[in-house]
Write a protein that binds this DNA or RNA. Structure first.
Lengths: 158, 158
DNA sequence: TCAAAGGGTTTGCTTTCCAAACCCACTAAG
DNA sequence: CTTAGTGGGTTTGGAAAGCAAACCCTTTGA
């Protein structure tokens, strides 16, 4: 990753892109916050999980909260920043549902809307534009790198 | 990853979650489709990139298209499935912009809406519910695992 | 007193990663 | 021609990360 394109995607992946990290986020977002729940539900080696947790706590994505004193025991809860990774999880899940499991969803998310809503419905996440509200289509986007020397397809002049 | 929770997030990450894979998707989505553009723009070791490309082509996320015959040369273009990973990239980028670069975006995306729109505006991606159109908030979601023996927080009975 | 649960750490082996060097086919320049 | 350069990889050898299984420590329950 030397002299690579400056990019928030790369920055985010440097933090949560290691193997299992996003699965940790999935679990804590679902409410499984303890070490051996994580081991069981994710299937990660315990030592690897230990190092991932440390990294995510250091980064402020998780926080380590004691739930017992006498034997010191902790749970790993998502911070606000951690919860804000949920859109990433939702879009990953939607893609896998569509392209890998062909509609046989291993998990269904129920969406209960704001105060004015009664019944829940199944969530199908769509990425939209905050400004105009439309669903984002690839052809409607133009990339503008802000780093001098970079264009959309690479360094300007070598 | 044995006996882990069945999950489309994990399935998707098994495919595109290896180091650099999503950065490859970023590049080809931006239009940088050739081997050494990818090397330069991503900063990945060439041999690793070779193996990632093979994997993504095999998975149908990229396609290898010849653009020269006499020295056989190829470019790696995203398939429709590959382009549909763009929402993942957008949500990752939004998170990094917010939490890692604190508003100093390394890249700005311009959104030009449908036929009725004239000027473009800056894209701020938001995940919404296709059914009701509302922005998705964590507290409005309930997870329903479809796999017998699994609850939201883990295996039901061991 | 013995066993089990919870939360890790240690061990020893295997797999990846990585930078740098190398290779091959062609093209353009001198 | 001969040489230099570009594009697209493959090879090499050492450093780092991953892995399963075993181990450790504390506390509660039988």
């Amino acid at each position: 990753m030397k002299d690579a394109r400056p990019c928030s995607i790369a920055d985010t992946l440097a933090l949560v892109g290691e193997k299992y990290s996003l699965l940790v986020l999935r679990e804590v977002t679902l409410g499984a916050t303890r070490f051996d729940q994580l081991v069981r539900n994710i299937g990660a080696p315990r030592d690897v999980l230990t190092s991932r947790l440390k990294r995510l706590v250091d980064a402020g994505v998780l926080e380590k909260v004691a739930y017992s004193e006498k034997p010191p025991r902790f749970e790993y809860r998502p911070t606000r920043a951690g919860l804000e990774l949920e859109p990433v999880l939702l879009t990953l899940m939607a893609w896998g549902d569509r392209h890998l499991n062909d509609g046989d969803r291993p998990m269904v998310l129920e969406h209960v809307g704001g105060p004015g809503h009664t019944g829940g419905h199944e969530l199908v996440p769509v990425v939209t534009c905050a400004e105009c509200g439309e669903a984002v289509r690839h052809d409607d986007l133009t990339a503008h790198p802000q780093t001098p020397g970079w264009t959309a397809t690479g360094p300007a002049a070598a």
